[in-house]
Amino acid sequence: MRVCLLTDKPDHPLLAAASSALIEAEHQVTILNPDTGTGSPSELVIPDDLADVYLLKAHTSRALVLARFLEAHGARVVNSAAATELCQDRSWIAAVAEGAGLPMPRTRTLDSLSEALHGAERPESGYPLMVKSRHSRRADLVARVDGPAELQDLAAEWSNEPVVLQEFVANSGWDHKLWVIAGEVFAGVRPAPVGAPPDGAQPVPLVRDLPPAWTGLALRAGEVFGLDVYGVDLLDREGAPVVVDINAFPGIRGPKGAPAALAALALRRPRPGPPAYGA
């Protein structure tokens, strides 16, 4: 079987270990960086000579164009281009989650952060709040704002950034990171980006010690968003899990068994992704 990794980081531990497992099982593994070259991404492949499955780790616009091209020519892509694109837009994520009844913080979308300083868009109450780039990417904006002065300082640096404003979820300072590969759940606990616990504080129990509702919520998120490889960040709000982020094909580091699960998924047919969502 021919498996192609769509990524600019083939040496990522998850991808490298999964590739080794596939090669040991006598499957062929190739690597394609969708951001190579300046022409159309479709020029990087030959439609009559496609791999059996493409693992879409890259999330750039060129990667999505290539993934759609591959899908249009009958290729299997994990995750689908539609599901991956959906998870790049925090406004879409919030809307879809709300429609499906998934617990997420209240979210408001602004075309630019500067709008939060004026008129009806100004958050007159509800501090602290979370300010995040609408479009998820490397080095994007994720910040807690405790009042108007902090918001004004942030807007001075990110004035034209499309953002979402979310209610701040009071929590223990720990992120529960649940990673799912084809229905198999792996977990870790990391300091939350904001409101992190003091240095030396011990993490709360891992997912094996949590109520089944937590893992059930992670699995439900995959069904809603049409994902086969994904991460769900959960915070504990008075004993109940709240989804604060969903990531398509995240960098899963640490959990034993994750590379083997990914290799096994590559040999299976993924379920279809969700329909495309408008802004």
Rank of each mutant, 00 (worst) to 15 (best):
D48M: 08
F168E: 11
V164F: 04
R208Y: 11
D140T: 13
V229M: 12
N79V: 03
A218L: 08
Y277P: 09
A82E: 15
S112L: 09
G188A: 11
V232R: 00
P41W: 05
K9C: 06
A248T: 00
V96S: 05
A263E: 10
P270M: 13
V65I: 12
L5V: 02
S20E: 15
A266C: 13
V142P: 00
L22T: 01
V96E: 10
A18D: 02
W92E: 09
G119P: 13
P13A: 10
V45D: 03
P241L: 03
P162M: 12
R271N: 08
H27S: 11
P212H: 07
L32C: 11
R68W: 02
G231K: 01
Y230C: 07
D140I: 01
D8R: 08
S91Q: 14
E157D: 12
S40F: 07
P255I: 01
L66Y: 00
Y127K: 12
E98S: 08
L234M: 12
A58F: 09
D11N: 12
L66R: 02
L64D: 07
L102E: 05
D199C: 09
R271V: 07
G222Y: 03
D228Q: 14
V131D: 04
K9D: 13
I23H: 06
M104Q: 11
W179H: 12
L210E: 05
V78I: 14
F69R: 08
A120E: 15
P193Q: 06
V185K: 08
D153Y: 03
L265P: 03
L267N: 11
G74N: 11
A139H: 10
Q88M: 09
W214L: 01
W174E: 01
Y127A: 09
G74Y: 07
G147S: 14
R253M: 09
V142L: 14
P274K: 08
R122W: 05
A16Q: 01
P272Y: 04
